[in-house]
């Protein structure tokens, strides 16, 4: 319950924050919903915390050139309830509504969530299905990388020392696209045992585009491209969906724990992929 001691700063300018990140022993504090519990259990003990929660320039949701840019410290509550996100990228708002609980959604941030890279977090499934990009920034440079390259492994990202998430960039959804995020809750923690995000667009009675992102199933979230390929060009009949969904766990080294064995997780992934796809399909225009 009591963290080890640390130095704390809360700059209000992004440049100041980035300059303070030179030290190896420094951690960025955003909403704190992942980091603070770890510090309280002394599983993390950074020597210095740079709190980016007061940097106004990191809290934004803009529409820009066919994308939504969501600032790193935008809370789950803001994403869930933003009229812009709800109309332009409803999948992300839906995913945000499933995260943690009311208090966690008030504090937790999109940048903090992805930077923590918990393999059972909710956002990654949707961000992968959306083919989102992550804008990263250091004191000296900026870059933007695909979300699939951002998640490297369990609790491991492509963030370089001194680098932070500046924004998450998602495409504005075509109005005809149907999307859905379906999740099996771990009954104690509320994390995803398996979470599946699906996006489908139809054209001329056929599935023109299918995207499926999966979280919870394995050490890192992934895009189920084999499912996507199986659907493209299909009419979307229940049996086609079922067949395609059955591919989701193929070749996956599934997590196994108290709450779900690897086999059961794989099975849940298949069922929930099917359900997420069916709902997404029903929401296509």
């Amino acid at each position: 319950m009591i963290a080890e001691n640390f130095e704390y700063s809360a700059p209000t300018k992004l440049d100041d924050a980035l300059r303070q990140l030179s030290n190896e022993d420094t951690k960025v504090l955003a909403g704190g919903m992942s980091l603070i519990p770890l510090m309280k259990l002394r599983l993390a003990a950074p020597g210095q915390l740079v709190d980016i929660g007061r940097i106004a320039d990191l809290n934004f949701i803009h529409e820009e050139g066919g994308t939504l840019r969501i600032g790193a410290t935008t809370t789950h509550y803001q994403v869930e309830n933003s009229p812009l996100v709800r109309s332009r990228c409803p999948l992300l708002a839906e995913a945000a509504s499933h995260i943690g609980d009311l208090q966690v959604r008030n504090m937790g941030t999109i940048g903090g969530s992805i930077a923590h890279a918990d393999p059972a977090a909710d956002y990654p499934a949707s961000l992968l299905a959306l083919e989102a990009r992550v804008a990263l920034v250091t004191a000296k440079s900026k870059r933007e990388i695909p979300i699939a390259d951002f998640f490297v492994d369990t609790f491991t990202t492509a963030l370089e020392p001194g680098e932070i998430v500046h924004a998450v960039v998602v495409p504005v959804e075509d109005q005809s696209t149907g999307t859905s995020y379906q999740k099996v809750l771990q009954p104690a923690s509320g994390f995803a045992i398996v979470g599946v995000a699906a996006r489908i667009r139809k054209s001329g009675g056929k599935i023109a585009m299918a995207r499926v992102g999966v979280t919870g199933l394995s050490g890192k979230p992934f895009r189920a491209t084999q499912v996507e390929k199986a659907l493209e060009g299909a009419a979307g009949s229940p049996s086609e969906i079922q067949k395609a969904a059955a591919l989701v766990s193929d070749g996956v080294d599934a997590n196994s724990d108290l709450h779900a064995s690897a086999d059961y997780r794989k099975h849940l992934a298949r069922v929930y992929t099917m359900r997420a796809l069916a709902i997404a399909l029903s929401r296509t225009a």
């Binding site: 771990q186 009954p187 104690a188 923690s189 108290l258 709450h259």
Partner: peptide, 15 residues
């Protein structure tokens, strides 16, 4: 193994 509320599932209002 179920040594915290993270793993020991107490009933919640929602379930």
């Amino acid at each position: 193994i179920t040594g915290e509320f993270m793993d020991y599932a107490l009933p919640k209002a929602s379930n």
